[in-house]
Design a protein around this nucleic acid. Structure first.
Lengths: 241, 241
DNA sequence: CGACCTCTTGAATGAACTCAACAAAAGTGG
DNA sequence: CCACTTTTGTTGAGTTCATTCAAGAGGTCG
């Protein structure tokens, strides 16, 4: 399987990592950074389908995504799978395990992905010594909360077409922040995964994508997406009702 | 308007606060608690309809709910209001403002409510000195994230009946944790607010509640709810389809 | 007591779902 | 490398559940 985002082959060190400005080091000085690096393990590589951890496993590590795409999957009390989020480089994974002290999601690689691991308790101790690191972790937690709320809103009141458009638009923006094309990218996830995440039937996702293709809003070749008409895409999302 | 939860009239001090075991002081020692209390302002009282802060206001304070019920409301880019959450005593409000540095929701009292205020930056500084406080704030952020994710799942794949049952059940559990009856309580929010929060039309909420009343699962007198058949309520939520 | 707002009820509509079948791509083994 | 299997994605037809729209009932407050 082809990787959506080329793998980052820089040496193991935040200072040389391409996406450190999206990750924990934001606001942390050079000297302090060395302390942070000391508790980060060499990035581990995962292949499509590999699990970083499973729902219910004892919580101890956080993961920082260096490259690739992953999904957080939760099985609810009746056995239904829900894809809580898709994760891109620079994001921190595992934060939802802090409170319950066990992972509340399984994290699965969708393509070849690399993640740095760090012990949460050591990180938390280090935060006491490095206020800027603490602040950044608070910011990340707040941001993740905000983004979860946002995706809740989107999945509820919107039509199928708006949900799909909003999903594509969200991915596009996230690729752009990471320095990739906002208008051309490859989906790392299946139609079924998309459908699950935005709460639609897979058939509906398929139909909507076809309609967007017919209307020349998107070009779609399997999992390759080109956004042909950014404005039209936004109009669909913004369209009242 | 009658308050859902009786107001907590204890002196201004976490050590004497009835719900401190649900709030920031968890895990914090007596001595350290004094430092925390020093930066908490005297609880302010809000009446139904009062705003604690508005969406877009500069973020600076966090609020800890001492008594009463509030809602977090967000207006999206097209002007649609979404009730992101309802808040009960012991909960921390305003955390979603840390990352964007402005409040991303308006917080409105639904009945008479009292909240302690504290400066976020002072709290964050104090967290560097008091590791147990830092850990508790991390826990609270993680918990809120988890609960937001949970409510997302519930609002998506579930039928109208399941959403309403799940909403009632969730409130019931939260009242119970706070020492109130799990089976008899008063809703502080309107049907319209409930409908908005669980993404249904108000008419649908009304119809579902009527059905639950007819089926002797609930007794409903205006905003007074009695859960008559806890098992039946859980069965509705768990029901596969 | 009347005005206003919240809540309830009914009937018709419609958007997304289910189920079923088919098509295409990716993976497997001789 | 090609046939085979498996997985993933697409298409169509009929159904269902929640919505919309409209009207009426019940509370609440001046």
């Amino acid at each position: 399987m082809q990787s959506t985002i080329p793998e980052n082959n820089s040496a193991h060190s935040c200072s040389h990592c391409a996406i450190s400005q999206l990750c924990l080091p934001v606001g942390v000085s050079q000297q302090e950074l060395a302390q942070l690096e000391a508790l980060i393990n060499q990035a581990k590589v995962y292949h499509a389908g590999d699990y970083a951890h499973r729902q219910g496993d004892e919580f101890n590590k956080l993961y920082a995504i260096k490259s690739g795409t992953l999904k957080s999957v939760r099985v609810d009390e009746f056995g239904n799978e829900h894809i809580v989020a898709f994760h891109l480089p620079g994001e921190l994974v595992g934060l939802d395990g802090i409170y319950p002290e066990k992972y509340s999601c399984s994290v699965v690689a969708l393509d070849t992905a690399a993640m740095c691991e760090m012990d949460y308790h050591k990180l938390s101790d280090l935060c006491s010594d490095i206020p800027s690191l603490q602040k950044q972790l608070f910011r990340i937690l707040s941001r993740d909360m905000y983004e979860t709320q946002w995706s809740t809103l989107n999945n509820n009141d919107l039509t199928a077409e708006q949900r799909v458009a909003s999903f594509i638009n969200n991915l596009s923006a996230r690729f752009e922040v990471r320095g990739y094309s906002a208008t051309q990218f490859q989906l790392a996830m299946s139609r079924q995964d998309i459908a699950n995440h935005i709460s639609l039937a897979p058939e509906t996702v398929s139909r909507v994508l076809k309609r967007l293709k017919n209307n020349k809003v998107l070009d779609i070749q399997n999992r390759n997406i080109s956004i042909l008409d950014v404005e039209a895409l936004n109009d669909i999302i913004q369209c009242q009702n």
